[in-house]
């Protein structure tokens, strides 16, 4: 005897089974389902196609879809694992997983390193470091003379570049973060531990019965 009610839920193009995503990330199945509620909201803000476009990402971060920001651009590009210009649900969950309080610190450092490797050469070069400092100063309307910026970049670079080859590699970056853990403070979002409380509606749309 079948049930008279069958729930038909329409999923977005990049939708992935929450059980699989939960097995590959620090999230539980319920948390992945709650993230789907967030994803639906973000991905329908401008174009309702179930994908997060860069303008929607900027809108969510800055309440302004046109606002440009070097670091938001880099984060979007890293979330867009397939490099097709949009963030799919699976990419969203896998990338946010790095920001989970329980994610390995090494993953957080590697993500930050890739973020800072603007030219994606596998190294952070001095020019990239200066470019990022200047971008932050522009963003925050802080005025520092070029001499001061040069001095800050020089000091950081000489501390990090322990091999003295003019570039910061991943090992050097890891060592520096170990000495200054606050450098990756933004790589942890405590909020992710409470995601099911923020989006309780996931219960009504859940496909997986949770036994966690």
């Amino acid at each position: 005897m079948g049930c008279c009610y069958s729930k038909k839920v329409i999923r977005t193009p990049g939708y992935k089974d929450p059980t699989i995503l939960a097995s590959e990330t620090p999230f539980t199945v319920s948390e992945v389902e709650a993230l789907y509620e967030l994803f639906k909201k973000l991905s329908s803000a401008i174009i309702n196609d179930g994908l997060i476009h860069k303008e929607e990402f900027q809108l969510a971060l800055f309440r302004n879809s046109k606002r440009k920001n070097l670091f938001a651009d880099r984060i979007f590009d890293l979330f867009d694992i397939k490099r097709n210009g949009v963030i799919e649900f699976g990419e969203f969950v896998r990338s946010l997983g790095v920001f989970h309080p329980n994610a390995p610190v090494e993953d957080k450092i590697k993500f930050a390193y890739r973020l800072y490797d603007l030219k994606q050469t596998g190294f952070i070069e001095r020019a990239e470091l200066k470019e990022m400092v200047l971008a932050l100063l522009r963003e925050s309307d802080i005025v520092l003379s070029d001499d001061v910026v040069e001095a800050i970049v020089d000091k950081t670079f000489s501390e990090a570049d322990t091999k003295g080859d003019g570039k910061i590699d991943l090992d050097e970056f890891m060592d520096m973060v170990k000495n200054h853990p606050m450098l990756i403070k933004n790589m942890t979002l405590p909020y992710l531990k409470d995601i099911t409380l923020a989006f309780p509606s996931f219960i009504f749309n859940a496909e997986v019965e949770n036994i966690e």
Partner: peptide, 24 residues
């Protein structure tokens, strides 16, 4: 200058993903 360039960068608003979770 006792400032770390990476520390300065980490204060970017573009790096603060907590805004994704705020009610719009």
């Amino acid at each position: 200058y006792n400032l770390n360039a990476f520390d300065i960068i980490s204060y970017s608003e573009g790096f603060d993903l907590s805004a994704l979770f705020e009610e719009k």
